[in-house]
Design a protein around this nucleic acid. Structure first.
Length: 452
RNA sequence: GGCGGCGUGGCCGAGUGGCUUAGGCAAGGGCCUGCAAAGCCCUGUACCCGGGUUCGAUUCCCGGCGCCGCCUCCA
């Protein structure tokens, strides 16, 4: 049983599956108009780890994450750059996938684009209009939030109490501040599609409803995203589904933000660092480890120092993997230590408690080293295998042992001979030459070893 | 103004009414090693402030102070 905090009910509760053995999850993807920053990275990694974990438990996971490729921001930015919005979107989408791959994030099962769903969205909006949940105004079609009982659920506030907090002068065309655009009439020069309400484009909140229902079906299991999407975006999705009388997400999960100097990292606050700048300077796995060391519902402070700290921890994992490499000289075929696997699963099933899971793994890592130091190879390997299996579930694989060049290997051979002859001056000199070529030599009871 | 969250050792970050007081990184000492690397062991006055409840609170309650999020596009 997986306990997961549910934003709609405000408590941690069991993640119930529509169909046993299958998990249908939807996670709101990016609006592609600019480079992805560390906050987006946390987002990708949190849900990547969630789906990897669920899959490791034997669930058939269908993971859908959309690409918003038509939106005000895209139109604005494209105009600034003097290129068509569609070109900008395609370019930025490519960048998104590139960085996602670099972070080792598995591609979604489906990654639908909003522009590919416009006719379906128009159909859906027609249904909303027929249900009396939409009204036309001068600049488009709007959703009538008062038509949905319990509007405000995901904000955990009533419509009245939300109204009390309205801070911004709202669009005068709307009847009420929280009503939102379903269809935006096109202004001259803007991309547009035909509709019963004239040429225009869909409002942002509609694509996710239509695409999730199309690809996952009614009453899918889990809907995820950043906490900033809970209200109004997700609430608006929920409201539309309710108005159309279709079953929507059974469970809502939201993750907290990346902070910089205690403040939410965001494009509008101009306090963001791009993921690309991080992966250029650090092992991309270090960010995954850093993200997983905190709980997904807690804010996470990211600084160059914390990234470096994670990178150091990672080198320990890599050294560990070298020591217990299945194909290495110490390689012993044993079953993974069951107790650790169970502890790992228990932590993950407890609202995806990756900090607890990692604590257990690092503790086990130390135990395995201690056991191996003490000569208990069997138990050490059983534990090590479990450790590495669990890290793999989290998407943290040891660094691939890239092959040293023939030159380096020859130098190592010469050094081994020098050491055997106890000519340590020569051995040390050779080690320096190897080091200058970017390799570290480790002497072990079973012979010398190279790594980057 | 409404709703919600946070304040933990040099840094990051879990957690708990008392028990061996997570884990990572860093620091100091030691073991191992020809020397390293890797590994292991040991060490450090941690829980924002003030009340209250309690035999006992970092943990529960009340009140402060400070910080942050959502209510507007936003992972």
């Amino acid at each position: 049983m997986v306990a997961l905090y549910d934003t709609a009910s405000g408590v941690r509760r069991e993640l119930l599956l529509r169909r046993p053995g299958e998990l249908a999850m939807y996670v709101c993807g990016p609006t592609v108009y600019d480079a992805a920053h560390l906050g987006h990275g946390r987002h990708m990694l949190v849900w990547d780890v969630a789906r990897r974990f669920f899959a490791s438990r034997g669930l058939a996971v269908t993971y859908v994450s959309n690409i918003t490729d038509i939106d005000d921001k895209i139109i604005e930015r494209a105009a600034l750059l003097g290129i068509p919005p569609s070109e900008l979107a395609r370019m930025e989408e490519e960048r998104w996938w590139k960085i996602s791959d670099e972070l080792g994030v598995l591609r979604p099962t489906h990654a639908p684009r909003a522009t590919e769903y416009v006719p379906d969205m128009v159909d859906f909006l027609r249904r909303l209009a027929e249900a009396g949940a939409a009204y036309e105004a001068a600049d488009g079609l709007y959703f009538d939030t008062s038509s949905v009982p319990g509007y405000g659920l995901l904000a955990r506030q009533s419509l009245d109490s939300l109204r009390a907090g309205a801070r911004v002068a709202t669009n005068v065309a709307k009847r009420a501040p929280f009503d939102f655009a379903l269809w935006k009439a096109a202004k001259p020069g803007e991309p547009s599609w035909d509709s019963p309400w004239g040429p225009g484009r869909p409002g942002w909140h509609t694509e996710c409803v239509v695409m999730s229902l199309d690809l996952l079906g009614e009453g899918f299991d889990l809907h995820g995203g950043g906490m900033d999407l809970a209200f109004p975006h997700h609430e608006n999705e929920r409201a539309q589904a309710a108005a159309a009388q279709v079953g929507f997400a059974g469970h809502w999960a939201h993750h907290a933000f990346v902070t910089a100097g205690g403040e939410k990292m965001s494009k509008s606050a101009h306090n963001f660092s791009t993921l690309a700048s991080l992966t250029e300077a650090h092992d991309p796995r270090s960010y995954r480890l850093l993200v997983l060391r905190s709980h997904y519902r807690q804010p996470l402070e990211v600084t160059p120092e914390t990234v470096s700290q994670a990178e150091e921890a990672l080198s320990r994992l890599d050294a560990f993997a070298r020591r217990f490499a299945p194909e290495g000289p110490l390689g012993i075929a044993v079953a993974p230590e069951e107790a650790l696997l169970q502890a790992f699963v228990a932590a993950m099933e407890d609202d995806l408690d990756t900090p607890a899971a990692l604590a257990a793994l690092f503790e086990a890592l130390r135990s395995a080293n201690t056991l191996a130091d003490g000569g208990d190879a069997q138990r050490a390997h059983a534990l090590a295998r479990a450790v590495l299996e669990c890290f793999a579930v989290l998407g943290l694989e040891p660094a691939a042992g890239s092959d040293a060049s023939p030159e380096v290997k020859e130098l190592l051979r010469l050094r081994d001979m020098a050491r055997r002859d106890r000519d340590f001056a020569a051995a040390d000199h050779l080690r320096e030459r190897i080091s200058a070529l970017g390799w570290v030599v480790e002497d072990t009871p079973l012979g010398s070893r190279l790594h980057r």
